[in-house]
């Protein structure tokens, strides 16, 4: 066991996996000597060499395309996109290449890669260093989308992603990179992809959340003594419908919390899934607490991010609904 934050958990996992498997190769902007702008790859170039930890030119579509070209040839690349906000020039590569190669080759060519990228706000990043674009990826068939909310899950999910055999969009909530230290096993354990985590148990309401919102929701629930199930999805595609069903059938009341804008966010899909299959169990409308449908502000970001006050208002509305 070691006491570590999320950055250290990710770094030590890459180190461990690279030591065991020389087909794992890292590439991205400033990830080598500099160790990445958030230091997730710190020290890895010194240990594994510049051929395996590659500092690339500044071109997101090139980084992603190059990683795909390695993966289809039997490597396990881990490209890093410095901020998720910068990924959009690579969306053609992600949607039309990465996500479709297994399908368009009848399974003859596969793309085992893990695309790591920090996402979300709360670090005074403004419009272009704060976005939560998970819906773009979840909407694309062929992608698996994962987001950890603590150091233990970060290590276990990264390890599982590296062995999935399909492309994984690994979204790292940058606000949580150094927010929390916890005891993390040193061995190569896995957190199963597609399985949610029940981080708080209760019978009255189900709060579904993920990534950076997990600690915010957990603390709101604890401070206010809410009798809630809090589900940390951990995998956004495919979501753990069994865990959601079990909880919703018990509580009959649902609040969904995420940082991304409301319209067509994860909350929309989760709400539809729950309504379609469990309407007869529901006592109240499903409510969403999300970022607004605006670009992400710099100076006033605390108004953008869902907070305890907004979460509790939704929880109380759902609990009091008759």
């Amino acid at each position: 066991m070691s006491n570590m934050n999320m950055v250290q958990a990710l770094n030590s996992t890459l180190d461990m996996k690279m030591s065991k498997d020389d087909s794992i190769i890292l590439l991205g902007e400033d990830i080598g000597k500099d160790g990445g702008v958030f230091r997730v790859t710190d020290g890895l170039q010194a240990k594994f060499g510049p051929e395996r930890v590659i500092d690339t030119p500044l071109v997101e579509l090139g980084i992603v395309g190059m990683a795909i070209g390695m993966a289809v040839y039997g490597m396990k690349p881990v490209p890093e996109i410095q901020f998720q906000d910068f990924i959009y020039t690579a969306m053609d590569q992600i949607i039309n290449q990465m996500a479709k190669i297994r399908y368009r080759t009848g399974g003859k060519i596969t793309v085992p890669l893990v695309l790591r990228t920090p996402y979300g706000g709360g670090i005074r990043g403004g419009l272009y260093h704060s976005q939560s674009g998970e819906s773009y990826f979840v909407h694309t068939a062929g992608l698996t989308v994962v987001t950890p909310s603590n150091p233990y899950d970060a290590r276990g999910l990264l390890s599982a992603s590296l062995e999935l055999g399909d492309p994984v969009i690994f979204l790292e909530p940058k606000r949580l990179y150094r927010a929390q230290k916890m005891e993390v096993p040193d061995n190569d354990y896995k957190v199963e992809i597609g399985k949610a985590n029940l981080v708080h148990q209760g019978d009255s309401v189900t709060i579904v959340t993920y990534g950076s919102m997990v600690p915010t929701v957990a603390s709101a629930v604890e401070k206010n003594g809410v009798d809630a199930d809090v589900l940390d999805l951990r995998t956004l595609s495919p979501v753990d419908i069994d865990a959601i069903s079990a909880s919703v059938k018990k509580t009959g009341r649902v609040v969904i919390v995420h940082e991304a804008p409301r319209t067509l966010g994860m909350g929309a899909e989760l709400s539809a899934m729950i309504s379609e299959r469990m309407i007869e169990y529901l006592y109240a409308p499903i409510l969403r607490v999300t970022g607004p449908d605006t670009p992400f502000p710099y100076r006033l970001e605390e108004y953008y991010l869902p907070n305890e006050k907004r979460i509790m208002a939704a929880v109380n509305r759902v609990l009091e609904f008759r």
């Binding site: 090139g62 190059m66 795909i68 070209g69 289809v72 040839y73 590569q93 368009r104 003859k108």
Partner: peptide, 27 residues
């Protein structure tokens, strides 16, 4: 596509295979 003959398959958006060729050459 004919992977057994070293042909890597074709997407419709033109030139999107070019960055892949870079990655494969690197590998």
């Amino acid at each position: 596509v004919a992977r057994d003959y070293n042909f890597m398959s074709v997407p419709s958006p033109v030139a999107t295979n070019l960055p892949l060729a870079v990655g494969t050459a690197y590998a």
